[in-house]
Design a protein around this nucleic acid. Structure first.
Length: 424
DNA sequence: TCTCCGATTAGAC
DNA sequence: CTAACGGTCTAATCGGAGA
């Protein structure tokens, strides 16, 4: 059953959001840059120069701001339309290398290269092709399992001598042990800060120590997930390559507001925008939701202000994907939840109990109405896809304003907005 | 005592 | 124009309610 050792590659883009920005601003290639999360809240991508200056991943922008000005670090608001577009270009290239692949995230892709000849040359060629055709630098890590491929990628990124490619399968047992003994255990996929702290109590600090730890104890104290991780580190595949993306089990759209919201109708306006986005996602995967939740939040970092984090879960009379119907429920829930005297900082909508549209039982009486709604929503999605989301909106969506997120440092939509194309 | 289910935890990016 | 800390998603596990 066990054939030749798997050659599973993980290709990961370097500092992805920053690299996307640089593609259209080559003059920034040496400049320290960070990209901020929504609402210009936290640092979510850093150039190597910014890392060297001590900027931490996830750090709140207001904490970094002074240092950034002092050291001339350029901060940009995130431009997701640009990143999604660049991601598609990169993924199209990578998935062309093998039918067995998994797009794991916006900047990572697993590709099964088992059976391909001249792996080393192939890996370098892949890397060169992505850089040449898209301008995005990537590193290639290869291993027998996903977890080891990830680790190999980490090594490729960190060690300049690897020139961006590292194959764990090329190591002897002794070399494997030596290299894993030097890697801290928190570099392992699935081992975050909490587990790292608890592992330290068992004197597990390095990847090698986790790899050779007594399995039954590990299982008992840390659960199945970490046991699987251990097996993966030992070379036994426990996490399958997921070729086809499974439909979402829940769809959330939430946002922090640029300024505090105190009025119910502003809240409802924001929520109708979230509903529109969530329902469009639902329809794009041909699903219906049978449950919707709305939640409101005050600013949890302002302990000097009164706190209130209500939410309402509404079972729907029947599964639906209709923005208008969902929007009525959301507005009603907001009304139930809203109380005066609070400064709301964030709100959101969650769709759950999701089923595929085709396996939903039809209701003869309402079939005609349903068909009408379906074609209306279909037309709406097509227009918004072609001419930009929010070409066609639902009822009061976006009428009041006053809640939009802060994005004071956004670059132009180079690839997706014709009018912002730089003149060559 | 068992089972179910919602809430919580942990992690990824 | 002013305080200021992101958004989505999954799986596993916990713990209380009800059978």
């Amino acid at each position: 059953m066990s054939g030749p050792i798997k050659q599973l590659a993980l290709i990961d883009c370097n500092n992805f959001y920053v690299s996307c920005e640089r593609v259209f601003r080559p003059d920034l290639s040496k400049q320290a840059i960070v990209v901020l999360s929504n609402n210009d809240g936290c640092v979510v991508s850093r150039s190597n120069e910014a890392k060297a200056l001590g900027i931490k991943m996830g750090q709140p922008w207001f904490e970094v701001k002074n240092l950034a000005e002092e050291k001339n670090i350029l901060a940009l608001s995130s431009n997701y339309a640009l990143y999604a577009d660049m991601s598609n270009r990169v993924m199209r290239i990578l998935t062309g290398y093998a039918p067995e692949h998994e797009i794991y995230s916006i900047d990572e892709c697993f590709v099964d290269l088992t059976g391909q000849t001249k792996l080393r040359e192939l890996s370098y060629a892949m890397r060169e092709r992505v850089i040449g055709w898209t301008g995005i630098p990537v590193c290639v890590g290869i291993g027998p399992t996903k977890t080891l491929a990830k680790l190999a990628n980490h090594i490729a990124k960190k060690h300049p001598r690897s020139k961006g490619v590292f194959n764990f399968n090329d190591l002897t047992t002794e070399q494997q042990q030596r290299i894993l003994s030097r890697l801290p255990v928190n570099e392992v996929w699935g081992v975050g800060s909490r587990i790292t702290a608890r592992l330290a109590e068992y004197k597990i600090h390095t990847v090698q120590e986790l790899r050779e730890f007594h399995t039954p104890t590990l299982r008992k104290e840390f659960g199945v997930t970490l046991e699987k991780t251990q097996r993966e580190l030992q070379g036994t595949s426990c996490i399958a390559l997921e070729d086809i993306a499974s439909p979402k089990q829940q769809i959330i759209c939430s946002r922090s507001f640029g300024k505090n919201v105190t009025e119910l109708h502003v809240l409802q306006d924001a929520l109708s925008t979230f509903v529109a986005t969530a329902a469009a996602k639902l329809r794009s995967q041909h699903s219906h939701a049978a449950m919707m939740q709305v939640f409101l939040m005050t600013n949890r970092f302002r302990q000097d202000l009164p706190q209130y984090h209500p939410s309402w879960v509404l079972p729907l009379p029947r599964p639906t994907d209709d923005s208008l119907e969902l929007n009525r429920y959301a507005a009603w829930m907001a009304e139930q939840l809203w109380k005066p005297g609070y400064a709301y900082k964030k709100a959101g909508v969650m769709l759950c109990e999701i089923t595929q549209a085709n396996q939903r039982q039809g209701d003869l009486l309402s079939q005609e109405v349903e068909t009408k709604h379906a074609s209306l929503m279909g037309a709406l999605d097509k227009l918004n896809q072609r001419y930009g989301r929010s070409t066609v909106k639902v009822s009061t969506q976006g009428m009041t304003g006053g809640w939009e997120m802060r994005q004071e440092r956004k670059s132009p939509a180079y690839t997706t907005d014709w009018w912002n194309m730089p003149v060559v």
